[in-house]
Design a protein around this nucleic acid. Structure first.
Length: 751
DNA sequence: CGCTGATGACCCCAG
DNA sequence: GTCATCAGCG
């Protein structure tokens, strides 16, 4: 398609007129660094996609543009939206996560680094855990005194700050750091010997290649003349440097972020990167997107009021043209079961009265453990739901097992997968025998798997173990041969599951759990066949080298490692969504319930000690509130079971920070000790049908769709409301009869 | 070698 | 309360 044709085309072919003036300026500002501070719901993805379309319309080649995101979800969404604007004109554009972009680069360039090979595998967090435990064992460190998790997170932290083993060692101060330093060294050596990278290596090594090989860097600088970064407030130091290097030549860097939504400090994100952007790039164009298109006025007011309590933030105030909306309801529950009942009753009511689909609701909580009670309640009353956190598909035992087999087939140098599956299903190869194999391999300078070829020479093995190891070896060699012939991943997986006896093992077990595992394996097989169907497109896309053996299998494994959630977010499914506040970031829902608003839970007790952490929790609260479009419910329980113990808890301090006048506070009936005093005034005391009571009312507000009970007319539904406050005229349908009532005089309850 | 019961740790989580 | 890990025994 020619540029000339494009220019002759309607000036607004990319619908720039659909943007507000600031959005449009952000989308059209072409050269040089630009920082877009985009408040929640201000249309930031829209701006990014229009910007990409606009660059291409200006004659920039799509392959000169790189858009970086954190999540696959964000990358996918942006790709789709760019696709809608551009159709096939976007060919060659890179819209991908930091990690997939870096893997693509490393698959080409990693061999520049001494000893690294292009056919590396990627270790996930449980592989990392296995490896670090081995390291601590070698160092003779009791993992009860030093938690492997802590060591791992210290190493990850170091890598995120681009600290090498040597850097770390040089500045290790105390006993713990000293241990981490030693562990880091061994850990890194093990990764290297296994031809494996962990997730942090993916970024760190890309930076290393760029720093050590300026010509390689130059190549990518020339290629990516225009760079866009989404959620810039979530970048860690390594990602910050990566972007800085890539944009170093042309400086056409557009970053979008919201310091108020920085909630990933604990995994290395550094808000300072966004706060300092203007210092790094003095010629920066700064734009603020402050108009919110998502939420009602009251929801926005609540969000603003809370986040304004933070001292360390860029000054901005979100506003909206949307209607004020309904009050924010705060429910005080007696315990977590009461809270769950409140949520399910509300959903039932709104679904009955307003015909709300289940899809409209989301339940947000601070920790995954809180989902259980709500899940149980939903099951009990038959509300369809879907949990969007918790265990990932690829982390399930059976899936990890089959993946370990595949990884071993792909890269037999890899010892973590070897150790995992050598005795699965049970082959009578115990810890003792395995140690002997490892010992022998070490002595002979062999990879463990290759040592099995000489099983006869391994001293101290029992005949039974020897035979088992031998047949295991032959089995895997056979799989390898098939893979090298280019067998489809589905067929290979099938063969492994059958020949190793894995399927038989689960069938024999026959428990409900085993059946669930079999189902998961079926699910896995449908993923492989999906991949087999279009692996050619995938390989082309990731630029995996053709000359490599087992390209097909390698491509599959890479896809699996980089796409963490196949439990993909499905907007169409009609089910209530349950997720943590963290995973809700970037999403929106008509009706949001934020549950467990209790001090100690939210803010989490470990983050209440210092302002830095407390402010991050408060930002999380801001994120949670701003997910809601129309209606927000906040609930807290006076007592809650935590780790098997009943705990008394106070309402979250964040609830205290909410502005008066837009709140409707409701208390569980189970809490009022004195029932007699509950009937003081018919107008001011309200009973909800789940046994809850409104104890504090600004003015009683009725909205279209409210179910009501009138003293004389009985039950009805509000059809229309005109006017405001006490004088409002409310139209209600009672069984067949339509009545117009004035709010002030209507002897009527919301039910 | 592999099962069983006691013991203690337990947040948020992309890739 | 629930999961993972480990010592100790058949």
């Amino acid at each position: 398609m020619s540029r000339v044709w494009r220019k002759e085309y309607n000036e607004d072919m990319y619908h720039l007129n659909e943007l507000n003036p600031v959005q449009r300026e952000a989308a059209e500002y072409k050269d040089g660094p630009i920082l877009i501070l985009a408040g929640a719901g201000s249309g930031k993805t829209r701006v990014l996609t229009y910007r990409i379309a606009h660059l291409i319309a200006q004659g920039i080649e799509p392959w000169n543009i790189l858009a970086l995101t954190f999540t696959n979800r964000a990358a996918k969404e942006m790709k789709e939206r760019v696709g809608t604007l551009l159709g096939s004109e976007g060919q060659g554009l890179w819209v991908s996560t930091f990690h997939s972009s870096c893997v693509r680069i490393l698959r080409r360039e990693i061999s520049a680094l001494n000893g690294y090979s292009r056919s590396f595998v990627i270790y996930d967090s449980s592989d990392q855990m296995t490896l670090i435990k081995e390291c601590l064992k070698e160092l003779d460190i009791d993992d009860k005194k030093i938690a492997p998790r802590a060591v791992l997170s210290a190493i990850s932290d170091a890598k995120n700050k681009l600290k090498t083993v040597e850097n770390f060692d040089a500045q290790a101060g105390d006993y713990f750091q000293d241990i981490v330093s030693k562990a880091y060294k061994i850990y890194q050596k093990k990764l290297f010997n296994n031809n494996a990278l962990d997730f942090d290596d993916i970024i760190m090594l890309t930076v290393r290649v760029f720093r050590e090989f300026p010509d390689v860097l130059k190549h990518y600088q020339e290629r990516f003349k225009y760079i866009l970064v989404d959620e810039y407030q979530d970048t860690n130091h390594a990602q910050y440097i990566l972007v800085k290097l890539l944009a170093g030549l042309y400086r056409n860097l557009c970053v979008v972020g919201d310091d108020d939504q920085s909630v990933y400090g604990w995994r290395g994100a550094d808000v300072q990167n966004i706060l300092d952007f203007e210092r790094d790039y003095p010629e920066t164009k700064l734009l603020k997107l402050e108009q919110n298109y998502r939420s009602t006025g009251k929801i926005l007011k609540a969000a603003n009021t809370v986040v304004c309590q933070n001292a360390n933030r860029k000054d901005k105030v979100l506003w909206t043209e949307n209607s004020e909306g309904e009050d924010i309801e705060i429910y005080k529950a007696s315990n977590e079961h009461d809270e769950a009942r409140f949520v399910s009753n509300k959903i039932r009511d709104l679904s009955d009265a307003e015909g709300r689909p289940y899809n409209d609701f989301a339940i947000l909580y601070r920790t995954n453990a809180q989902s259980r009670v709500i899940e149980e309640q939903f099951m009990k009353v038959g509300i369809p739901y879907r949990i969007y956190s918790g265990q990932k598909f690829y982390e399930r035992m059976e899936v990890k097992d089959i993946l370990a087999y595949l990884k071993l087939v792909y890269n037999s140098a890899e010892s973590v997968s070897f150790t995992r599956v050598v005795n699965i299903p049970k082959r009578g190869i115990g810890k003792g025998s395995l140690e002997k194999v490892f010992e022998y391999a070490e002595e002979q300078g062999l990879k463990v798997f290759d040592a099995l070829a000489e099983v006869e020479h391994i001293p101290g093995l029992q005949t039974k173990a020897k035979r088992s190891l031998e047949s295991f070896y032959n089995l895997v060699v056979e799989f390898k041969a098939k893979a090298e012939e280019g067998i489809a991943v589905t067929d290979l997986t099938d063969k492994i599951l059958a020949d190793t006896g894995y399927i038989t093992m689960l069938r024999t077990e026959g428990t409900i759990e085993a059946n669930a595992r079999l189902e998961n394996l079926n699910e896995f097989l449908s993923l492989t066949s999906e991949y087999d169907k279009n692996f050619e497109a995938y390989l082309e896309d990731t630029e995996i080298k053709e000359e490599q053996n087992m390209v097909i299998l390698g491509g599959f494994l890479e896809q699996v490692s980089l796409v963490a959630d196949i439990d993909n977010y499905d907007e169409v499914e009609d089910a209530v969504k349950l997720m943590t506040m963290h995973s809700a970031k970037g999403l929106e829902f008509p009706i949001v319930f934020a549950v467990g608003m209790e001090d100690g839970i939210f803010p989490s007790s470990r983050n209440t000690l210092d302002d830095l952490h407390l402010e991050e929790e408060r930002r999380l609260c801001y994120v949670a509130i701003t997910r809601a479009k129309e209606k927000l419910y906040l609930s807290h329980a006076c007592q809650r079971m935590v780790y098997g113990h009943i705990q008394d808890s106070l309402a979250s301090r964040f609830l205290e920070e909410l502005p008066e006048g837009i709140l409707l506070k409701i208390e569980s009936k189970a809490l009022s000790s004195n029932f007699a005093s509950a009937g003081t005034s018919y107008q001011n005391k309200k009973w909800l049908d789940n046994g809850s009571e409104i104890v504090k009312l600004g003015s009683v507000k009725f909205t279209v769709g409210d179910k009501v009970e009138h003293m004389t007319f009985g039950r009805g539904i509000v059809m229309a409301v005109s006017g405001e406050g006490k004088q409002a005229e409310i139209t209600v349908v009672f069984s067949g009869e339509i009545k117009k009532l004035i709010a002030e005089y209507a002897k009527m309850l919301k039910i």
